[in-house]
């Protein structure tokens, strides 16, 4: 325990922000930045992919389906390697590990978010689409004003658990030298050499504290949403439908 406190005293700042302000930002700050940036960019892409997936036009449905299936069908680490070699070739210039990781996360997460959003859209009663179209609203107007606001609201807890997955996935950035939390911990471990258990216990504790508090938040949100739905959306007996399980792996 004293070892852990000593490590935190000597290297706590490195874990939090890397060499900043004397060097590049790193550690937990980069982990969080990657997670937030990844999910924030993946979200609009995921919505677009979801709309493509449910489109009745094959030119939209096919590419979206292929992207979703491929991204969901390969391990993330393989995807990272692939992007690592592909991006510099595609763009014709060197690409940093951080950018590579961000792009990878965005595409990978978008595929998962697309399926979440698709389930949210398809889970709404058909009458919502019919009622809106009967009023003369176009398909896209209906999506924007009627379907997506309801679907996304219902999906907030699931999206939050997707965010939690993203946080854990950023640790794989280590393999292409992204200066994030796991990378910082490993740096400390190679400096100290004799305290791997302590160093990696600290690492695990930080990830756990972050993810677990978010899981609690997702639970809380979920409860709020089902309570709200019971009060507002009584027409389909939504109050009695079982709550979706939060899965955070």
């Amino acid at each position: 325990m004293t070892d852990i406190l000593a490590i935190l005293r000597d290297y706590g700042l490195l874990l939090l922000v890397g060499q900043f302000p004397n060097g590049p930002m790193g550690g937990l700050a980069i982990t969080i930045a990657l997670s937030i940036g990844g999910i924030a960019l993946a979200f609009p892409l995921g919505v677009v992919l979801a709309l493509g997936r449910i489109s009745r036009f094959a030119v939209l449905a096919w590419p979206a389906t292929v992207v979703v299936y491929v991204a969901r069908g390969v391990p993330l680490i393989m995807f990272i390697f692939w992007m690592y070699y592909f991006l510099p070739v595609a763009t014709g210039r060197p690409v940093s590990g951080l950018t590579t990781m961000l792009v990878t996360l965005v595409v990978y997460q978008a595929a998962y978010i697309a399926e979440i959003v698709r389930a949210g859209i398809e889970g709404l009663p058909r009458g919502q689409m019919e009622a809106s179209r009967s009023l003369g609203m176009s398909y896209l107007q209906t999506m924007r004003k009627v379907i997506l606001p309801q679907a996304l609201y219902n999906m907030v807890p699931t999206l939050l658990s997707q965010f939690i997955s993203t946080i854990k996935e950023t640790s794989l950035g280590y393999v292409i030298g992204v200066n994030e939390l796991t990378f910082a911990a490993n740096q400390i471990n190679t400096t100290l050499l004799t305290k791997p258990f302590q160093v990696f216990a600290i690492l695990a504790a930080i990830y756990f504290a972050l993810c677990f508090s978010l899981t609690l938040m997702a639970r809380q949100l979920e409860r709020r949403i089902s309570a709200r739905r019971a009060g507002l959306g009584s027409q389909s007996g939504a109050a009695t439908t079982p709550r979706p399980q939060i899965i955070t792996e």
């Binding site: 009622a131 009023l135 003369g136 609203m137 004003k145 507002l232 027409q235």
Partner: peptide, 29 residues
């Protein structure tokens, strides 16, 4: 879309938009 805006349709299951207030339901279209 233009054609449908000229015909009112009332459903068995109401199909109001649950995320909008009553007045916003009415003014949406």
């Amino acid at each position: 879309n233009k054609f449908r805006s000229h015909i009112g349709f009332v459903f068995q299951s109401f199909n109001l938009f649950p995320h909008l207030t009553v007045l916003d339901n009415i003014t949406l279209a």
